[in-house]
Nucleic acid binder design. Structure first.
Length: 226
DNA sequence: CCAGACGTTGTT
DNA sequence: GTCTGG
DNA sequence: CCAGACGTTGTT
DNA sequence: GTCTGG
């Protein structure tokens, strides 16, 4: 799954790479983005729109409170058929920007945090869905979820699920609101190729969502490399 | 019809 | 909202 | 995802 | 164990 990630590049670089206007967006380097925190998302249209959304989709109740816990992930294998995701998949797709994500490898009693990046170390986009929930007071909360799929060969020793990273050439397709072919959308939600990714062990400092700094992405002493 | 869930992960 | 269960 | 709290009553 | 908060 994907429950923690990083986004370190400055906003101007992200704006060039993902084709949005950076004005008004402050993006401090984030080494430990956790559920319920704001994430930088890009929506389709001309031009594309970048904004912050709360991570964890608030499933809309009938106007009162959001129902249940926020949903930080959606399964690619079932997202097409789930009622709760249906309208978001049709009309509210987005990119969630990142440059690495963390998975905890469980062995015996222990747990080792691993950081997984592109081999190039370039930033990338998770396939996301978003939602707008209006509170009784009239406030609109925009929230999003990250789609997951089965792990590729690189990630499988660490964990059996991984987030969907969109190949750069498919980002526009994912954001295209005219695209309504469910089979075509589902085919986009595939594991990213192992040979273009890398993984290494990091310090358990990343375990606490209160920690955030460059030391979180430093390779662990005598840590594993994949 | 209304009421109540709606999601994932991991662990057992 | 939209779907399932009663 | 992980970390950390988790409860009431009455009395001070 | 289970729930909430980040």
């Amino acid at each position: 799954m994907c429950g923690r990630f990083s986004l370190i590049m400055e906003i101007e670089g992200l704006a060039l790479r993902f084709e949005f206007e950076p004005y008004g967006l402050a993006q401090p380097p984030r080494y430990n983005v956790a559920p319920t925190q704001p994430v930088l998302a890009v929506r389709g249209g001309e031009p594309r729109q970048a904004l912050y959304m709360r991570w964890g989709l608030l499933m809309s109740g009938a106007g009162q409170a959001p129902s249940g816990r926020p949903i930080i992930n959606a399964r690619a294998e079932t997202v097409v058929e789930r009622p709760g995701f249906r309208s978001a998949l049709a009309r509210r797709r987005c990119l969630v920007l990142a440059d690495g994500f963390y998975e905890w490898q469980h062995d015996g009693a222990g747990r080792r945090p691993m950081r997984i990046t592109l081999a190039s170390r370039a930033p990338f986009a998770f396939a996301g869905l978003w939602n707008a929930w209006r509170s009784p007071q009239g406030d609109v909360v925009e929230s999003c979820t990250i789609i997951t799929t089965e792990a590729n060969e690189l990630v499988r020793p660490i964990h059996d699920r991984m987030p969907v990273i969109l190949p750069e050439e498919l980002e526009t397709l994912w954001l295209d609101e005219e695209m309504q072919d469910a089979a075509a959308l589902a085919s986009v939600l595939a594991p990213y190729p192992s040979e273009r990714m890398a993984a290494y062990e990091v310090s358990t400092l990343v375990n606490s969502a209160f920690n955030d700094g460059p030391e979180l992405i430093a390779p662990a002493e005598q840590g594993r490399l994949l």
